[in-house]
Amino acid sequence: MRRWLFAPRTGGFLVFLVLAVALPFVLPNAFFLDVAILALFNASICVGLNLLIGYAGQISLGHAGFLGIGAYASAILTGTFGWPAPLALAAGAAASGLLAFAVARPILRLRGHYLAMATLGLGVIVSIVANTERELTGGPDGMAVEPLSFAGFVVEGEAAWYWLALVLLAATVWLTINLVDSPLGRGLRAVHGSEVAARACGVDTDRYKVIAFTVSAVYASVVGSLGAHYVGFITPADAGFMRSVEYVTMVVLGGMASTFGAVVGAVILTALPQLLSSFQDYEHLVFGLILMLTMIFLPRGVVPSCAALFRRRRAP
């Protein structure tokens, strides 16, 4: 029991669960709960994205595109065509998955800045389509999204959404922690460590990269659908370049190749702009500054840097 409790895998997960379950009871009002829900959704996306960036070592600057595909699929299919929400969500996920799968092989042959450019282009194209196809998407003004309902049951109110988002994140974290420590997860990390060595060890690196890319894309799409239902409104900016950058920043700021780092990064960067909004016009200035300072002084990310500090304290 003790070992189970103190193993980073299980123990860390437990701490996270306790904190998250206690949170709604200490938050002063609905505004904070709203921020918390958004943070949970973002954290789910980042945990999935971290699989690709942190573990497999492949950058994506276009992930919001997949999020947008999910969000718009849900909005359009439920709103305009009257599909049931789960079916719309699945359709969006399938579309994202197919797109990701189709482009993954040629794109993931690229490295570094070339990969950054290709993924960036993919995301930007999605947001331009959303901007342009006014009749379907409402263009730059965005469109309303119906509440999430299924078989007569409607998810309503902040509390319900909080628990939904939490269950989703908890499941994601749990599955990811398992995956990272499995043969498949080690294969992914080996791709990051040295692609040639991974291949020489029998890892089908191309396939693994495709899997990581597709899984994280499908994942972003699903969360995009849910998030759209929750917020009730989407715009092309939700699929845009800056949004993609935000997700990557969350992952890197929290700490690459650390599942809890991705969660922490998402929470910080979701809450920060809300807190900074009291600075009004200075918001962007302060945000950019914080981003640069964190990366200069904690280049490995918040969680790994703090963990290293903690270890150094304990071991004299």
């Binding site: 070592g57 990390r189 990051h192 040639v196 060595a197 190749a257």
Partner: peptide, 11 residues
């Protein structure tokens, strides 16, 4: 094995 070490530094 490799002449210029190719260990997985992240593991």
């Amino acid at each position: 094995t490799f002449q210029n070490l190719q260990v997985f530094a992240n593991m």
